[in-house]
Design a protein around this nucleic acid. Structure first.
Lengths: 256, 256
DNA sequence: GCAACTTTGTGCGTGCCTTCACAAGCGGCT
DNA sequence: AGCCGCTTGTGAAGGCACGCACAAAGTTGC
């Protein structure tokens, strides 16, 4: 029942007990908040409290948690420490994930120096660039290697996640190198759609697109305020509640 | 038909012709790709081509475009320049949107120096911080002001969008100041859920959460490879196609 | 030990988003 | 001028996600 039916399907074994992608994203949020609660000395937390703190519906939160098992106590709530443990296990955080960062330009440099990754179990253990002025320097104690060393270095250090912060045109080549190095998960900041084999997971972060979405809402609000369309056509969005940002979709690049 | 029924509803006029949030995000992606195509001298583009280039289903692309009007030519495709114009209009990019950035630390500094914003119609025209060592310096030719000046400066410069790149605990206060300054759209990099009035739009970008989602997929792939669960429970995701990242949801902070 | 209260876990209805499939429309070719 | 092929735009269906509301289960008080 919970076992993958090994070999039942010659092609990619579809694993059971699936967790919706949307829930996975929220589980990570719950985990962060639980960490804060633990620091504050909280022992247990109810779904209602945790939901309020993370800005979601409490029923949705309970359903999300139910995907990873039944670790709540009826009438009481959830044990903070136990829930943290289960979430870390479910999210695969019980193994440290070494991260490689490619592209130490403007954004890349900031990402390399940003302590939030290592602090949350994602130590950046390899840096790469092509710029001769950058290759050889140290950032946060980590040597910047040349991108040609990606395959060997990544394998040596057991890198599981790659972050691409290069200019758009370079991204696909870097991506290919990472895939060759055995990296199966990539966080892409470059403004391109990466072509990858089926087994590789890509997430895209595009800051320019985020701003454009906001700009759309600015325009919409302006329309509502003025009470009429500005130059011919009107635009709107159905609801757009205060905090929920329904979909990211396949967002496109934003780092130049 | 296309006109907002002005005043039909005393409370917040629900505008017609609504565009799904998911589509808005993709429209921004199409726009970027169209810009590249225009540079390459493309005159027209079919939905199939544009869909392939942006990694979406062509029917979905056509439906997305249909929300902003019928600007395609059957049997031919879309005029690249005309479509760019219409998308810019629909996304509210015909007015320049001035952006304020609060928090010039690690990430904020990179964002301030990142040219991709101004280049795409979002000039960062105001910087703020609390750190006396930072207030007064110039980044990319822009003076860093003290956060206490947010209300006045933002109103003076007609800021419509705020980006919060402060540590988590400071974010809510900054957010309140921005709202007071009349800013109605906020891009939040801080790891907190911002409380805002109903009319304010908040989008959240959380890099740590992005990595955790990837870590989940790493763990899932490991399970599939090993063909059995590692420590008791198995985890999986229904499909997770190569490029589509369905939902962002209310993601939580990642900048410390 | 029983009753009342609290909180979890989930079945179900609703609505949005995605995808298929096709009619309508436009240009090019003869 | 008429036909053919190509592409758009959209109706309809399916799937997913959200949120309500409630039963199950555990705790507290008497």
């Amino acid at each position: 029942m919970t076992l993958p039916q090994a070999g039942s399907d010659p092609v990619t074994v579809r694993a059971p007990r699936s967790i919706p992608e949307a829930s996975v994203a929220r589980l990570a949020v719950y985990l962060r908040m639980l960490g804060e609660l633990a620091e504050q000395g909280a022992d247990t937390v109810s779904s209602e409290e945790l939901a309020a703190a993370t800005g979601v519906n409490s029923a949705k939160l309970r359903k999300d948690l139910s995907y990873i098992g039944s670790y709540g106590i009826r009438g009481v709530g959830y044990s903070v420490s136990a829930l943290i443990h289960q979430l870390e296990r479910a999210l695969g955080l019980n193994h440290r994930q070494a991260v490689a960062l490619i592209g130490v330009g403007n954004l890349g440099h900031a990402l390399a120096g940003y302590g939030g990754f290592g602090g949350r179990g994602f130590p950046v253990t390899a840096l790469f660039d092509v710029d001769p002025d950058l290759v050889g320097i140290h950032i946060n104690g980590i040597l910047v290697d040349h991108v040609r060393d990606i395959p060997t270095t990544c394998r040596e250090r057991g890198i599981t996640i790659g972050m691409i912060a290069t200019p758009g045109p370079a991204a696909q080549g870097i991506c290919d190198a990472l895939v060759e190095a055995g990296v199966r998960c990539i966080l892409n900041f470059a403004p391109v759609v990466l072509q990858v084999p089926e087994e590789v997971e890509v997430r895209k972060v595009d800051l320019a697109v985020e701003l454009q979405i906001l700009a759309f809402h600015v325009a919409r609000k302006r329309l509502v305020v003025e009470g009429a369309e500005v130059d011919g056509e009107s635009l709107a969005v159905p609801d757009a509640q205060a905090n929920g940002h329904p979909v990211n979709g396949t967002s496109n690049g934003g780092i130049r």
